[in-house]
């Protein structure tokens, strides 16, 4: 009978229409922005810089090694290395980024910067409501906007952040084989010197912090 196929199709639409009142399966939309679908833990959007402690700029993990700048496929990262050194989260003097800009109008959220960073300093954020009224400067994030605390990182990627913390703690423990308390400051300074003078490439292969033997404290 002509039209039987069409009627059969109509039955399907009727089933879906009525079903959408009773089954969640058949009505999957949410009323954004009043209602929001939860984000999965692995969700990534744009990168941010992790800092330890309370002070954002003092606690930045980034040592301005510029690996992410080189590896970034669309080249949206811009770093200027500092002239001087400041103590990092472990207390040893390191370079820090005098400028760290990410142009998020260019960034394509590929997270290659996260994968290549040997210092676990750059991670992916989850913020997605980033519309701006201005196209250029408003979408250029500087290091003040990018810096976010480690506890924020724990909030958005709990599993990953815990792994990172364990790895950093292990690396720190390996580096400091409990020197005598009185001789600690010079030993740490010497260790830091040895670590920073090592070529950056060495730090990269293992994917973690460079584990340099500490010179014996004298």
């Amino acid at each position: 009978m002509t039209g039987a196929g069409i009627l059969k199709g109509m039955a399907v639409t009727a089933r879906n229409f009525v079903g959408s009142y009773f089954e969640k399966e058949r009505l999957t939309t949410v009323q954004y922005p009043e209602e929001r679908a939860p984000l999965p833990e692995n969700y990534r959007n744009f990168p941010f810089l992790v800092f330890d402690g309370d002070e954002a700029q003092a606690g930045l993990r980034c040592v301005a090694c510029q690996i992410c700048e080189k590896e970034c496929p669309p080249q949206c990262i811009y770093i200027v290395k500092s002239k001087d050194k400041k103590p990092d989260y472990m207390g040893k003097p390191q370079f820090y980024p005098a400028t760290f800009d990410i142009d998020i109008s260019v960034c394509m959220s590929c997270q290659i910067c996260v994968e290549v960073c040997p210092f676990d300093a750059i991670k992916m954020d989850k913020v997605y409501e980033l519309s701006r009224r201005e196209r250029f400067d408003a979408l250029l994030m500087d290091k003040h906007e990018l810096a976010k605390s480690n506890s924020y990182y724990h909030g958005i990627h709990p599993t990953e952040a815990t792994e990172v913390d364990t790895r950093l703690a292990e690396a720190a423990a390996k580096k400091k084989p409990a020197p005598p308390a009185t001789a600690a400051p010079p030993a740490v300074a010497a260790a830091a010197k040895a670590a920073t003078s090592a070529p950056a490439a060495e730090a990269v292969v293992s994917g973690t912090l460079p584990a340099k033997p500490t010179p014996p404290a004298t």
Binding site: T28, P40, E41, N42, Y43, R44, M108, S109, C110
Partner: peptide, 24 residues
């Protein structure tokens, strides 16, 4: 109807790779 099903697969991609379409 097709997109409703597609959305389920994209949610899987998102929870694994972090992005629905640009999985990388």
């Amino acid at each position: 109807y097709a997109f409703r099903e597609r959305e389920k697969v994209l949610d899987l991609f998102e929870s694994l790779a972090g992005s629905r379409m640009m999985c990388d």
